[in-house]
Design a protein around this nucleic acid. Structure first.
Lengths: 228, 228, 228, 228
DNA sequence: TATGAATGAGTATTCATTCAT
DNA sequence: TATGAATGAATACTCATTCAT
């Protein structure tokens, strides 16, 4: 059954709503259009990278004129930043879900460290996007200092669950952060190799390597021998 | 009197040589010019990346017109590939030197694994160049499939000393290759993070982390506890 | 309780007024909004010129959307024309005030001729605006022929006080008009030079030059030697 | 008859010249092309003004691609500056010719002062171009400060003959410069009015007014009554 | 009356590459 | 070998204007 008369600002007067849509409706439409553009942008950025992608291509794919995008975003870089933020948000949610499902402290660490790796392994287009983070330093400023800062902060927040889980396993804060960085680095390296086919070239399996790496670390942390 | 029967394939007619220098001389001059162009290209590619660099900039820095470069290289990508090969050759020589100096098998492994890392740490511009290897998959074709294959082979040869040292320490070939890949991945990850400032953001020291990683691996290999 | 019978022109029927205000009130509000837009437009046109100014900038400064301006003016040129007319009206009032204060016929001529010059000297932004008049011929049609004609008429009316004063000093109508034109030209030239810094470049003072010019003309007219 | 063996650097070896044209020939061709572009640019700038003209239009009129112009000039502003310089050079030559023909000191002053005016009266397109000089102050920098400075200097040199002639008639340097500025201003004002049709509107003749103005000034300078 | 969204034409400039010389 | 000139396609971005709401 529908419940038309909730006290929410929507509803109440359908005729008026049809004539002049309520704020919420307008904003929703606007948001929807933004999403569609971002969706198109994501595809193009994934395929072409930040520099390689052209606003025209994004606009065309979104069914718009280039000029139209400027009503929704202030520049190509702004679009890229949003696409990247969305990707990181998905990663964050994916990790959180995994950690929430874990029942032991050890599993929580596994979930966090492997979750980071697994997300990018399963979503290689997100990895393509994320590589901007790894190139941040090369060109003076890719997205502008402000957006870069925001992305750095988002990244730090993203990795925190790994450190938190390590602390819960008895590590000091310093040790926990160190382990977090090590896992980040190892995952980044493996993803790099796997993503570019460099690992296949050596007949190795990247996810297996990552899992083993985490087990080794857990073994060191808990004093138990790693099951290899 | 002239000595026409030197063993070299060139020579034979000095008068003609003056008017039209012998093959060898010509080739040497030609090679020299190529080197000068590559030198200029290296500087520009390091600063601007493959996409960011313009042929005009390279030509200008080399003291040439853009059109002139086409007498020496067939395209911008061809130049990049040569610059990259040269960088890898330097890396190879650097690793070989370190390994040669090592006295024990353990040290040979340390030399190889850390040598890879250390070269890029000390020569960040080479790292910038090398990052192409890590992006190989992103753009449909960066340098063309042929050049990509050649680079892959060169990379494999480069890393071989690590596997060789591991075998000398008693690892099977499979284990040795696995360790080689792990070291490669860890080094790549750490370099990535260090290079883009992402590691400073966590207050960690990349070279320390790399050294520790190698010690852990050696300890596992030899059965001794790692000195942490 | 409501007090429906205030003496103001509004009121009388508040219910009706709320639903649909009477013509007068509506028109007044409309006029007010137009003024606010023109005010904003003036600032932008002064700073950027006719071509340089963008409708977006005008709209933004007026607190409107570009599209909204089209409810009040039919084009950018129409706005410019109105801004210019307002500027000329101010000039006219300024000259009239000066002439009214003058006690002798000679002073009336001084007031008119120098008043023209002085207004623009004191209000350089109005001069910027007015320069459109001087560029009228350059672009095929700046504001459209109709608007141009209206501006010409307004200009002629503006300068008339000079001719009137000259006639009062004994000049024939032809001589008076000639003097009017001469003064106009000299003032325009000096303003041009002063306005663009070209006069500073020669170390001269524009207003002094203008005053001297008028004295020379008065001397010729009255047969007295000019006080130089 | 042809005289093939002049001692000039041209000639001598026609075969070689055909194969690889001598420097002078190349430079001449290059200069010719530049001239053709400038010619096209002049037409467009005259018709559209600095802002209104587009590089595309200039290129099209010159029979080139927009990109091709960048081999000859570094920017639109650079082209404009050259066009303007050429116009001023023509003005300078025109004035110099007139002054050279003058036989008395008085005539020299007439020639210089009226020559300035007459050039622009006869070449209204040059006046359009020159109006940039009068708008210099409006927008922060039209051509860039360096080019603006160069143009100012050229203008000062252009007007100098007027001051020189005045000094020859007995004026002090200060008086001569003042007269120079006055003439410049009056001419500028009259040209403005004539050019924009504002003078016709009062039934006056600009060149007559200018001539009379100069006579008045000469009369003042020499103490004789002006022939009006 | 006012808005947000959209358009289509326009801007200067840069690029790798080609080619006659 | 080397150059200067040229091209054509591409770039991000801006503009005045329109229109459904």
């Amino acid at each position: 059954m529908s419940l038309p008369d909730r006290n929410s600002p929507e509803g109440l007067d359908e005729a008026a709503a049809a004539a002049k849509p309520r704020r919420g409706r307008r904003a929703a439409v606007r948001e929807l259009k933004r999403e569609l553009i971002l969706e198109a942008a994501r595809a193009v950025f994934e395929a072409e990278g930040l520099d390689g992608a052209s606003l025209r291509a994004i606009a065309a794919r979104a069914g718009y004129t280039p000029a139209a995008l400027y009503f929704h975003f202030e520049s190509k870089e702004a679009i890229y930043a949003e696409v990247l933020q969305a990707s990181m948000a998905r990663l964050g949610r994916s990790m959180a879900r995994r950690v929430a499902r874990a029942r032991t402290q050890e599993d929580r660490l596994r979930a966090a460290a492997l979750g980071f790796y697994a997300f990018y392994e399963k979503n290689p287009r997100d990895l393509d996007l994320g590589f901007y983070l790894f190139r941040g330093g090369m060109k003076p400023r890719g997205l502008g200092p402000e957006r870069d800062r925001a992305l750095n902060e988002a990244l730090a927040a993203l990795l925190e669950p790994i450190a938190t889980a390590a602390e819960a396993l008895g590590a000091t804060r310093a040790e926990a952060e160190r382990l977090m960085v090590e896992c980040f680095a190892h995952a980044a390296g493996l993803l790099l190799l796997a993503h570019t086919g460099r690992i296949r070239m050596f007949g190795a399996s990247a996810d297996r390597l990552m899992a083993d790496y985490v087990e080794e670390k857990i073994a060191m942390l808990t004093g138990r021998p790693a099951a290899r």
